[in-house]
Design a protein around this nucleic acid. Sequence first.
DNA 1: ATAACAATACAGGCTTGCCTGTTTGTAAGT
DNA 2: ACTTACAAACAGGCAAGCCTGTATTGTTAT
Lengths: 228, 228
Amino acid sequence: MPQRPRRSQDERSDETRTALHRATIRLLLDRGYSRFTTADAAAAAGVSRGALTHHFASKEDLVVRSVAQDLAGVTEGLRVFLAEGRGRRRGPDELVDHLWALMAGGLFYVTMEYLPEARHNAPFRERLLPVVRDFHAALDALWCSVSDAHDLDPAEAQVTLNATLCLMRGMVAQSVLKPDESYFAAMLDHWKAHLRALFARSAGAGDIPGPSHAGRHHSPPVPNPEVP
Amino acid sequence: MPQRPRRSQDERSDETRTALHRATIRLLLDRGYSRFTTADAAAAAGVSRGALTHHFASKEDLVVRSVAQDLAGVTEGLRVFLAEGRGRRRGPDELVDHLWALMAGGLFYVTMEYLPEARHNAPFRERLLPVVRDFHAALDALWCSVSDAHDLDPAEAQVTLNATLCLMRGMVAQSVLKPDESYFAAMLDHWKAHLRALFARSAGAGDIPGPSHAGRHHSPPVPNPEVP
DNA sequence: ATAACAATACAGGCTTGCCTGTTTGTAAGT
DNA sequence: ACTTACAAACAGGCAAGCCTGTATTGTTAT
């Protein structure tokens, strides 16, 4: 047993809360909302049930705050990805691949777990609304940076990039009961072509935004990494 | 109390099962899978719990068979809609509006209720797989009839129309926590333009497939009718 | 400095309510 | 008569919230 290094109260609380946040998202992904119990969350986080009830008023409170933390991490990751791309001359294909890896890698599976609960549980929904509002606002800001960098029509780019995420949400949802890799690969390729057309329409210098036909049909095969 | 008209055993069974099917879908839509109980389903159908257990081996059995019935009704309704359109010269806008009314009117909300369960409950998923496989096969057949009627490239139309549904799935999912009508209307208009381009590319006589700019921004405002 | 006190962090048992599958009993059709 | 359709009570399990008890950290008065 290692000697406890005398953490401050705030440190203790932060560590406990973070452990519970991560365990919650993990369990939502692995077992789903209906199978998710506060006891399991505490056990997975390595803390007691009492610790959980001390920091979180209810199961809903735990989930809402865990989701908020998770989404904050997602926007930050996306911001970094786009900032990196500022230097290199990345086209829409890489963006699609990145977003798909993100969504199909667990992000939207987690969302699908709490959406039904949000639909039927008004207090829960009310607490989630500002969380997702902020998330969508952050996304819109990121889309603006994309349309800026590539000299696109901002309004059109906004709609198109949000549609990209909607398409992927639908694809991930369908993937639960449609185990057909090629089906989704073809759809992503179709969408990449659509985005290339949008990017090519831009008034910018005639740079080639990405592979126009050569590099098709190699969308990444739905990985299943863990969501942080 | 009306005199019982002496129904045959098969009639009795059919009526009971149908009532339970309809009640199940209704309750899934109204209260969600986690709040859905077999007792409520029986009560909503106006039968006893004993009747339910007699006709359905388990809760999962009830849900799977109810969903199968529901999807059969959906394909039939879609078939009729497309058959009607054969005479008039309908463009993609009407198809989008119809599909959106269908999806946002409850169909995909119901789907969102059982998808998480399917993701975590292997036996349940195995029973659903053939059901949705048949549904998707029926859809593909319908898409073929569309590409035939409008002289489109079959493969391209297939992907595009399936993408239409995926987009709408994502939109309906997002609509749970994003109460922004205009956001979705703009997205549908964007997609209609995309489909008009596809339809216009067809080798057919230069008919105008639909309003190219005039009639935009009037997508139907997410009705919420009951799913049969 | 340090002892007393206060506040916060954590631990775990208990209770209550609910839901599913089962079983036993009754009525309607063949 | 005998099978099928329906009815309702029963039993077992499980999970959320509550509550009481303990340990650790922070504060203040001497």
